[in-house]
Write a protein that binds this DNA or RNA. Structure first.
Lengths: 159, 159
DNA sequence: CTTGACGGGTTCCAAAAAAGAACCCACTAT
DNA sequence: ATAGTGGGTTCTTTTTTGGAACCCGTCAAG
């Protein structure tokens, strides 16, 4: 199986990763959430080659995560903005960053702090169940197969 | 900048992605959370080449996300188990899968359902602030630079 | 005692992707 | 006439994948 064919797997996560799961793309999204919008700004901040950046921005745009909007005419200039669909990826970015803060910070501490403005404190991101409102642990979640997709589940060993 | 040098950036997210941010690694983690533990099981489910799988499992083990434990002697056989550090990545996996369910599902619907066993309903993953307990939106979070890391923040344009 | 199977890899080569640098184009400003 | 800006594309070299074969220790069967 080639990496570019994983979007054909019957798995939501695989199809998601087909758009955002390769090298650089999640870093591009990090910068999007920090307000970066222009090609050269991405390029300077990431240090990625222009060729790869061009490819990743195109994939994100085709995937509906970013929208290419003109902000001036003559000469036409455009910028990349997060769509609603793109903004829905925010929890992923926050949890990734928080995990890094917890486990990979060096002696200087985390380079960025996130403040939850509605309560005024440092954001302590948790996984919450929107139905009952409680915080969720990995071992409180049970996975069930959609009937019709048999044989894709676990190896029948206890976690 | 090469992809393998991004772990030297002063950004928690970049360092996190240096371990788990490349092609295939997040899919390996998906299977870990579904209970897969053995080399050949990963290989068959993912369809990735053994060479790449070997490399990804090694990186995850070196990063402390998986632990290689022997489950029998003569001949020695080992399996890969999530560590506590690895299990802390669960919110990332859940949000990625849920985003895919929402935006990329085909006519058959999501292939897997996640049930929050403590409330009995389908898990509706949300980003929660552990301090105030409320659900968090992207626009309620403000980012501040750690003094000592100047010049890494946004382009001073309003989101 | 030879053959085959199992789990868990490593080695080889060809093909694809990324790195790095140069170039391009439409327009504006000097 | 020249230089600069934003947003790329094209070129060549290096690195990473994909695909397949091979290896190793052990057990079990014929």
């Amino acid at each position: 199986m080639r990496w570019q064919d994983i979007d054909q797997q019957p798995c939501s996560l695989a199809r998601t990763l087909a758009i955002i799961g390769d090298n650089w793309t999640l870093l591009v999204l990090r910068d999007c959430f920090l307000g970066v919008r222009r090609f050269d700004d991405f390029q300077q901040r990431l240090g990625v080659t222009r060729h790869v950046l061009s490819d990743r921005l195109r994939k994100l745009t085709e995937g509906g995560i970013l929208a290419k909007v003109a902000y001036q005419e003559r000469p036409t200039r455009h910028e990349y903005r997060l769509t609603e669909k793109g903004k829905d990826l925010y929890p992923v970015i926050v949890h990734l960053a928080q995990w890094g803060d917890k486990y990979l910070a060096d002696e200087h501490g985390a380079p960025l702090h996130r403040i939850h403005t509605t309560c005024g404190h440092t954001l302590d991101a948790q996984l919450q169940c929107g139905h009952c409102g409680n915080t969720v642990n990995a071992n409180e979640v049970q996975v069930k197969e959609n009937p019709g997709f048999e044989g894709k589940l676990l190896v029948n060993s206890e976690q």
